[in-house]
Every structure is written in C-alpha cells, then in structure tokens.
Design a protein around this nucleic acid. Structure first.
Lengths: 113, 113
DNA sequence: TGCTAATATGCTTGTACACGCATACAATAA
DNA sequence: TTATTGTATGCGTGTACAAGCATATTAGCA
C-alpha cells in the first residue's frame, strides 16, 4: 500500500500518501521560517557570500546591533552558521549549504517573475 | 561596477552586491512565509498531488472547515491555486509549480537529515 | 586594575497571524 | 420557496516573534 518508488515516511503511515505527516510538515515549516523574515534572509545571503562581523552586518542592514545579534543567535541555535573570534570581534559565516540552495532557488524564481 | 555575469538587480544599486535589497528580501520572505506554516505546507503538498475539495482537506488535516478556507483564501490571493466548481463543491489544485519545487527541495533535505 | 570596543542577553512592546465560532453566501433539490 | 450541503467571511483571541532599549559579558589594552 505504498506509491511506487516514492519516499516512504513523509505521509502518515496509515494515511493518504498525498498528506504530509504533521511532524514532517512542522519540520518543513521550521526550515522555511528561517527565510520567511526579510532580515534573516538578508543575513543568510550575506553570510553565504563571505565572512561578516556583527557590526558590519548592523551597518549594512541599517539595524541596531542587538537586532542582528538576536537573529544570529537564532541561526546559531539552528546550527546554520559558524563563528570565528578575532579579539573582541566575532565573524559569522554560513555553515549549511542547503539553506542557500533553497534561498537561491527562490531568488531565481523571483528574477524570472 | 557590476559583478561579472551575476544577477543585476538583487543587491542595492550603490551598495554591496553581497547584501540583498530590502524589497528583494521582502519578496523572498513573502514566498517563504507561504510554506512557513505547517498547515499551509500540508495543503500545498496535498494540492500538488491531486485535486481536493475543502471538506476533504478539512477531514484529512483534522481542521475545522473555516480554518482550511482561510488558508485557501491566502493561497488564492497569491494566485498559487486554482479552483473548479462542481455544484456546491469547490475543488482546489496547485497552480504554481515553483512553490512545489521549493517545498520538494526542503523535503528532500529533511529526508537526508 | 580600570577603560574601551565588540558582542550577547533580558525585558518589553507592537504587530502579524492561525484558527475557532458564528454566520453569511452559493448551489442544488424537493 | 424552503431546506440542505458545501464554502466563504467577519470577528475575536491566543500566540509567536522582530526589534528596540538597557545592560551584562568578553577581550584587548594602558
């Protein structure tokens, strides 16, 4: 009672395979929530291009430093970024190529209207 | 003062090309917001598989009918779904393949941990 | 030790929104 | 017309959260 070679555990075990399990849907939604905020999307994209310290991001995005730190904390807890200290300065970099792939896909779609 | 063949209008005209324009970031975020909710993610996935009427979705997702209608309204306003009437019943179907592509990409990533 | 620069965190507030209930609207049948 | 079924909408509420201010923390330097 399985659709031909399709992924197995996405849909409810005894349910319609066209319906995503609630927990799978929640995992999916959690990923998308990261990029569903303009500030985080900009931070993720910037960190995918090169290393940035917090104050650089703060200036480039026109946000208070705590606002940036708050978002970076979110990304850190999700293990999407890595950090490197240089004195009092902390440099951030994107750690997860998957997130960039998803972001890039949507950026491409937007370009083609 | 443009990066080699790279996309042109994504970053601020006079700014760092590694920084997304605020309006571009907002467009990106709007796309991701659609899938950033478990219920909408499940609806989008279900509608990508086949046609569904509202009451079917309501039963399959374990939600009240108005809750489903509210989300379908959101998807309708964004022109992501199309409708077909049959008597009092309205059938919905996914209209935008891009959304499914993005959703599928994340589903695949989740499967590979 | 004290001072300064860079970052992180606690707290608060405004805002967005998912979804429930009640109800309005639409379409078919008797 | 009236009743019934399916869907849409208005309203209210609880919840999540972005970001600001104030402040704590960390690291380097005099």
């Amino acid at each position: 009672m399985q659709t031909h070679g399709a992924p197995s555990s996405l849909a409810a075990a005894a349910g319609d395979p066209a319906v995503l399990n609630l927990d799978v849907a929640e995992s999916v939604a959690q990923v998308f929530k990261v990029l569903a905020d303009p500030t985080r999307a900009r931070i993720v994209y910037a960190l995918s291009q090169r290393e940035w310290c917090v104050c650089e991001l703060s200036r480039a995005l026109g946000l208070e430093q705590p606002a940036v730190s708050h978002q970076l904390r979110t990304l850190r807890l999700l293990r999407l970024v890595t950090t490197r200290r240089a004195g009092t300065t902390v440099f951030y970099r994107l750690a997860d190529p998957h997130v960039l792939a998803v972001l890039q896909l949507v950026l491409d779609h937007i370009q083609h209207n």
